[in-house]
Amino acid sequence: MNALDQTSGHTVAHGASEGLPSALEQSHTYATHRGRPVRTEPRAVRIVLTVIALAFVGLFIGLPLVTVFYEAFKRGWQAYVAALVAPDALAAIQLTLIVAAISVVANLLFGLVAAWSIAKFEFPGKTFLITLIDLPFSVSPVVAGLVYVLLFGSQGLFAAYLQAWDIKIIFALPGIVLATIFVTFPFVARELIPLMQEQGTAEEEAAISLGASGLSTFFRVTLPNVKWALLYGVLLCNARAMGEFGAVSVVSGHVRGLTNTMPLHIEILYNEYQFVASFAVASLLALLALVTLIAKTILEHRLAEEDR
């Protein structure tokens, strides 16, 4: 016992006498280097790069945005409001809202189900499903619209069946909704899958081991854990659903006051040289974009906070 004490005592004394000067030396070194930023580019280069970036953003994004509002208000408030309350414009706004509402809800449900099954379970064909979810990002929206025309159009695959039951899909609301759902398909799922995968299944297992049912676990644990990401996905999905042009253009048939969404209506007005009316409706979409951007920034902040 005595021998042990001596050994350890010796070690401690030794360590202390050597450790002290080296610690002092280190703090000295830090002090002289502190405050000198690790950056190599000279000031001029940094300024030039920043100016180029700002000019680019201003020219390609800022200027068009300002132009939209400038053109919309060119003839004053009255003309602006008049353009928006025109029956065709109101019909287009209404249709856009309906289409967006249906598509967002549909993709919200699909996105949740897909992300949940992909992130929490193992099943054959999983990789294939993940790839398939990304398809709308890589396919031109016009092609997507065309596919629906080929399937449900008057010469389409299901034409006879649809005629027999008197169901109209192409050149009607269902077609526009289908095309929009296709295009906005990945947004919610893409947002949720990585987050759910990262969170794993431990919290769900804990909930079930504490006596919660599957449904109760989903609503009390799984859903609250992804709520901000879900909202973020819905936001992007909504912005895209309202702004979609290509796919909707193919299936809508451009019937004024009936099957024209806002983007289609804007194009028609523009082609008819009704610039003020065209830009007035366009300004609504631009406004939506701005609101989306602000909401997106807030949500990103919330997501980063949850990540801590």
Partner: peptide, 20 residues
């Protein structure tokens, strides 16, 4: 019996606390 019905207390490796 499922885990729900076994009435066992399980402490997970990384605790699996409900973060929200």
């Amino acid at each position: 019996r499922s885990v729900r019905e076994r009435n066992v207390g399980f402490v997970f490796q990384h605790y699996a606390l409900f973060r929200h």
